[in-house]
Design a protein around this nucleic acid. Structure first.
Lengths: 151, 151
DNA sequence: AGGAGAAGCGTGTGCGGCGCACGCTAATCT
DNA sequence: AGATTAGCGTGCGCCGCACACGCTTCTCCT
């Protein structure tokens, strides 16, 4: 019999990467967190959480957006009190984007919601299967064909 | 010790769903297939491949886009010879969007590239592990918290 | 040491994706 | 048959995005 492993994974990933899936996910994760947090601004927020204080240009490189786009999204988040700007003490040209306390809290909430949703869906799995799957997924994503930028 | 399964999966999925990942994937899959096929038009193409001939309105519901957006993307694909319009024989108001022979070919190429990339990245895995992972991923996506629209 | 060029920032502007709203035709329902 | 519903194309307006400009600050070379 022929091996369908690649096709099975392709189907599953295809579904996962669909627009509707992403939209539903964002809607659920950011619900009730204020209108400043949406599918557009969240990557700025979570990028900052990942990297720590960063200039708009650097953050743009990190998340694959133009510097000016990052600036304007950060404007909204700053107005909402989730992000703060401060002059870089080391470089007088640069402005560092930083998460406020509330900003950290917002990221923590969305991340926790994400984890909870995953754990709920894994609740019916034998624990060993769940662990195996988690390890496999991590490996697949980390060394996968299109995951991190290696350049 | 605490269980980190949910966090591991969340991290991996987070990386997978990032903008940059998606962009790199689309770039690779659609390379050299003509400028009509890109991240915007491809969902129309693959949606049609999935469902068969469909009206713009129905296809819009399928892929989560406004009817008019689908119409305009289909215009480009039609110009490029990948999609064809024909009046619905059953409903005089409707226009069915259909893949041309070339359109089917384009979808086949991208899908094959996707499968190949996945299989390449799995080449170093023990075959049993790869199969287990594929089964797990399918299950996770199918019954997962945000996969198919159940409404 | 000082001037040139590079690198940071904000913001004005143009392009393009998106969906609402309009006017139309065809189907359906009473 | 008339009214309502559902399909289509297309003209807007809105907004995300990045390029381009002018400015400040750093860095580097002479």
């Amino acid at each position: 019999m022929t091996d369908t492993t690649g096709y099975d994974i392709a189907d599953a990933l295809g579904l996962l990467l669909r627009r509707g899936t992403r939209a539903r996910l964002y809607t659920h994760l950011t619900e009730g967190l204020g209108e400043a947090v949406d599918e557009l601004t969240y990557p700025v927020l979570s990028g900052l959480a990942r990297t720590g204080p960063l200039s708009a240009a650097d953050l743009g490189r990190e998340i694959g957006l133009d510097r000016t786009t990052v600036t304007r999204r950060a404007d909204r988040l700053e107005t909402a009190g989730l992000v703060q700007r401060q002059p870089d003490p080391v470089d007088g040209r640069a402005t560092l984007l930083t998460l406020t306390h509330q900003g950290h809290g917002t990221v923590a909430v969305t991340r926790q919601r994400f984890v909870t949703a995953i754990e709920d869906s894994l609740a019916s799995w034998p624990e060993a299967d769940a662990r195996t799957f988690a390890r496999g997924l991590r490996r697949f994503v980390d060394e996968g064909p299109f995951a991190p930028q290696r350049d």
